[in-house]
Each structure stands twice: as C-alpha cells, then as structure tokens.
Simulated assay, not measured.
Amino acid sequence: MQHRVRAVLLTPNNTMLLIKRIRPGIDPYWVIVGGKIEPTDTSPEDALRREVREEIAGETRIIGLLHTLQTDEERQDFYLAAIDKWSFEDRTGPEFSQEGRGEYLLEEIPLTTEALEAINLLPQEIAAVLREAVERGELLAVR
C-alpha cells in the first residue's frame, strides 16, 4: 500500500497554500502539498517536512493529524501545519522537471467556505473536511 502525507499549510495571512495543477486536456484542479513517504524518511512527519521543503522550499510546524483517507491501494494522512515563509521559485521536487506534467502554480486560498467552494480541490473528501473545519472556525483557531 502506498502511504502519502499532505500538509494543510496555514499562513500568517489567514490563507491556505495549495498547488494549482494545469494539465493538457484536463480542467484545472488544486491539491494539497505533499507526497509519498520514502524509505529514507524516519516518520510520516519527517516525510511531510521533506515534501514541504521540496515542493515550496518552506519549513513547517506540524500542528497535528487532521484526517486520513484510505483505500485498498493508498493511505493519505492530512496534517494541519503552520508555515511562515516559502519560496516556490526554489522548489526542488523531481516532478517539477518532468516533461508532460503540466504546470504547478502555488496559490494562497482564503480560509473561507466561499473560496474553497470556488475551486476544484482534490480529493473531494478532503475538500469537504476542510469546508466543514472552516465553517466551525477550527482552522483560524489553530494558526
């Protein structure tokens, strides 16, 4: 089973950092920063910090596990995390240099239900979890 970790990155601007994917022949969609746990990672949290460094050249403070999605093939752990500085231009993830992968754009999305409903955030189950957390005021409270 593939094990992935994702960071719901909360900024000092009361926004969440998401990656907008633009691929040929597919409507744009947004994803949460993260990726698979590598054999060299000592823990899921270590993998998460590595992925944040690779994908947005940032350092994050992990707040805690928010949600887990699991199928027979894959487990994805979504962590709440705070981030103060990042540099998308200094990213180093291998996916950014692969041909045919399309565009990766970093966007700050306001922590409002309206902003979350206006984008196609995948997977849809985590989008629903985040909308509910925003409605309850939980994301702003943890930052």
Rank of each mutant, 00 (worst) to 15 (best):
R4E: 13
R4M: 12
R6I: 10
R6P: 12
V8Q: 03
V8K: 04
L10C: 14
T11W: 10
N13H: 12
N13P: 04
N14V: 09
L18W: 11
L18K: 12
L18S: 09
I19E: 10
I19V: 13
K20V: 09
K20R: 13
R21K: 11
P24S: 14
P24T: 15
P24Y: 14
G25H: 13
G25Q: 15
I26P: 10
D27C: 14
D27T: 12
D27M: 11
P28K: 13
I32Y: 08
I32N: 08
V33L: 10
G34S: 10
E38Q: 15
P39H: 09
T40Y: 14
P44R: 05
E45Y: 02
D46C: 07
A47W: 06
A47L: 01
A47G: 05
R49N: 01
R50S: 07
E51I: 07
E51A: 15
V52L: 02
R53N: 05
E54V: 09
E54A: 09
E54L: 11
E54T: 06
E55Y: 07
I56G: 04
A57V: 11
G58T: 05
E59F: 02
E59Y: 06
E59A: 01
E59K: 03
R61E: 14
I62R: 01
I63G: 07
L65M: 02
L65K: 01
L66G: 01
L66P: 03
L66E: 01
T68G: 01
T68R: 05
T68S: 07
L69A: 06
Q70R: 15
T71Y: 00
T71A: 03
D72I: 02
E73V: 00
E73F: 03
R75A: 01
Q76M: 10
D77F: 00
F78I: 00
F78G: 01
Y79D: 00
A82L: 06
K85D: 06
K85W: 03
K85E: 02
R91S: 03
T92L: 02
P94Y: 14
P94D: 11
P94E: 13
E99A: 02
E99F: 03
E103S: 13
Y104H: 06
L106M: 08
L106S: 02
E107H: 08
E108A: 04
E108V: 02
I109S: 00
P110K: 06
L111R: 05
T113W: 07
T113R: 15
E114H: 07
A115H: 07
A115Y: 03
L116T: 10
E117T: 10
A118C: 06
L121G: 13
L122F: 13
L122K: 15
P123H: 12
P123T: 14
P123Q: 11
P123K: 09
Q124K: 13
Q124F: 14
Q124A: 13
E125V: 11
E125T: 11
V129E: 14
V129A: 05
L130E: 07
E132V: 07
A133H: 06
V134G: 11
V134C: 13
E135Q: 15
R136T: 03
G137Q: 11
G137L: 05
L139Y: 06
L139T: 08
L140F: 10
A141H: 06
